[in-house]
């Protein structure tokens, strides 16, 4: 028995050796803060005095107030619109580039530039574009005689969230485009050649060859976009700070405000725990439905 265990350790030892540094890093920088966050969510703590155990009071407060539902609604709205927009636009552009339309190299490069820009730069830039009195968008609308469509883009509760979604879609469509394009380009050319010989048209090529072949990468891209969108913070904080009238408040801005403006670290931890739970549930459901967790056997 001992000999067998020793042999097993010899066989697997090198495997553990390779995995351990990553496990250590994940443990210290991910698992520990997560456990600490869950622990703190049961305390009242201002970051200075000793934490005071209050049980589930933070959670009761959180779900009793309207703020969390308001932030949750905006987070979901943003996530749905942003993921739909970035994936659809990215897919369309990838399809166009994959068909080698005229100037495809330029489009591929140009559309990826936005991804390379820091979010803070994009947010500040677009905040200027959206400025109601001298901003580029309203100036453009005025110059082409569409003054009636000018808006107080970021200051009006009706348009603020939509404006942020538009910026986000603009910035991240290049990212989905690149991933999906890579997936499309990995399809065996013989499949396309065979289909061409069979007399397939372009619509059929997209729906019966390209899309089924990139189904798994497409699911991965959607999954990544859901996670990215759900935890987006910087673009909201810089462009609107959650305003006007909390109409762009999302869970992340609420968390930041609760922790760093109000000094309620216990309540902020409760928000983070709720966020982790929501995103885990969405991810698990999606993994199950998309069967991404299953091993592909070629």
């Amino acid at each position: 028995m001992v000999v067998k265990r020793k042999r097993l350790l010899q066989e697997w030892g090198i495997g553990y050796a390779f995995v351990l540094p990553a496990v250590a890093l994940v443990g210290v920088f991910l698992v520990y803060p997560l456990i600490r966050s869950i622990y703190l969510s049961f305390f009242s703590w201002n970051g200075i005095s000793a934490p005071k155990f209050i049980g589930l009071v933070n959670y009761v407060k959180l779900f009793h107030g309207k703020e969390i539902w308001n932030a949750f609604l905006h987070t979901i709205l943003y996530t749905v619109c942003s993921v739909t927009g970035t994936v659809l636009i990215g897919l369309l552009i990838a399809l166009a580039i994959e068909r080698r339309i005229r100037g495809w190299r330029f489009y591929k490069f140009a559309l990826y530039i936005s991804v390379m820009l820091p979010v803070t730069v994009v947010a500040v830039l677009f905040a200027k574009f959206f400025e109601p009195n001298y901003g580029l968008f309203n100036a453009l609308l005025r110059s082409i005689g569409l003054e009636r469509f000018t808006q107080n883009w970021l200051g009006d509760p009706k348009t603020a969230l939509g404006s942020i979604i538009a910026v986000s879609v603009w910035q991240y469509s290049g990212f989905t485009m690149l991933l999906l394009l890579a997936a499309m380009e990995s399809i065996d050319p013989a499949v396309h050649e065979a289909a061409t010989i069979d007399g397939i048209n372009e619509r059929q090529r997209i729906f019966y060859i390209t899309l089924p072949c990139i189904k798994r990468p497409l699911f991965v891209v959607v999954m990544l976009q859901i996670i990215f969108s759900f935890k987006t913070f910087d673009i909201f904080w810089i462009m609107t700070g959650g305003g006007p009238a909390l109409k762009t408040e999302v869970l992340t801005t609420m968390l930041y405000r609760t922790a760093f403006s109000y000094g309620k670290y216990g309540l902020a931890s409760a928000i983070s725990v709720v966020m982790i739970l929501i995103i885990s549930l969405i991810s698990l459901y999606y993994l199950k439905k998309s069967k991404l967790g299953e091993q592909v056997v070629e």
């Binding site: 010899q10 030892g13 553990y16 050796a17 351990l20 540094p21 250590a24 443990g27 210290v28 520990y32």
Partner: peptide, 17 residues
Amino acid sequence: KRNKLASTLLVFLALAM
């Protein structure tokens, strides 16, 4: 040697935690 390496890393992990 492999066992030693694994043990060292385990100790490192424990210390880091």
